[in-house]
């Protein structure tokens, strides 16, 4: 190390005092434009969380309704005016689901392809009824350890694909802000439902969280590809 480097390192703290820092002005701008975090409300709920909870409840209710319909055999009324026949459930569930699911749900609630494999399993487990086990605080359901891990890997894979760490944040500010807000929401959900008898709701929320996160990451990926395509097109022109 040369004398110049040694001298600079000795004066390192002095270098951080060279210029006047507009400390108060910057603080006022931070406060005006982006309020720092406020104390959590006593009630522990906010509108964002309530909307997620509502979605989860609708999904859970729908799942429960489907589950209750799922007897070993089911009576299926045929469209032609013939007598009711007994049809084994294994031959009919897909068709029945498609008929009964509202169109909006079919269009909007379809998980991303990457999640499709993990999601049904997670949802099935999250009901806790498929194998007769009810999740408790002492015995957390397997989705937290197994399926969450799998979904986390999917998320990590997507993040690697788009190079999230080196991504130009300014160019995708809106989508990245959505990701940040999603993180905050799920942190609140974990805090609110992390222990106690609401584990089932937490699981549903986590599944929904990963689904949304992967959707946003895929959207970023799409935007990146679109940008690259246009840049290549411009170069050709």
């Amino acid at each position: 190390m040369s004398d110049l480097e040694k001298y600079i390192l000795e004066q390192r703290d002095e270098l951080d005092r060279m210029e006047a820092v507009p400390e108060e002005a910057m603080w006022q701008r931070i406060r005006a434009n982006h309020a720092p975090p406020q104390a959590p409300k006593k009630a522990g709920f906010n509108w964002k969380w309530l909307s997620i909870a509502a979605i989860v409840l609708v999904l859970a209710g729908w799942g429960l309704w489907l589950f209750n319909k799922g007897e070993p055999t089911v009576t299926v009324p045929l469209q032609t005016p013939t007598p009711k026949v007994q049809v084994p459930i294994a031959e009919q569930p897909k068709q029945r689901d498609e008929e009964q699911a509202p169109v909006a749900e079919q269009q909007n609630e379809t998980p991303p392809p990457a999640v499709a494999e993990a999601l049904p399993k997670a949802k099935k487990r999250s009901t806790g009824k498929a194998n007769g086990q009810q999740p408790t605080a002492k015995n957390p359901p397997p989705v937290v350890s197994e399926d969450e891990q799998r979904l986390q890997q999917l998320v990590a894979q997507k993040q690697r694909e788009i190079g999230l760490d080196t991504l130009d944040r300014a160019a995708y500010a809106d989508l990245l802000r959505e990701l940040d807000e999603l993180e905050i929401t799920v942190q609140e959900a974990r805090r609110d439902l992390g222990s106690g008898p609401q584990q089932e709701r937490l699981m549903e929320t986590l599944i929904r969280y990963y689904e949304l996160k992967i959707r946003i990451l895929e959207q970023i990926n799409y935007e990146i590809n679109k940008k690259e395509y246009h840049e290549a097109l411009e170069k050709r022109i």
Binding site: L15, D16, E19, W27, P37, P40
Partner: peptide, 27 residues
């Protein structure tokens, strides 16, 4: 305390590091 929403703590956290961060970014 900052996470709990105490503004005094948030201001103190900011004040403790803003000088060094400003110069790091400026350089």
């Amino acid at each position: 305390q900052s996470l709990a929403g105490q503004e005094e703590a948030q201001r103190a956290l900011y004040g403790r590091y803003v000088g060094a961060m400003f110069h790091t970014v400026l350089r």
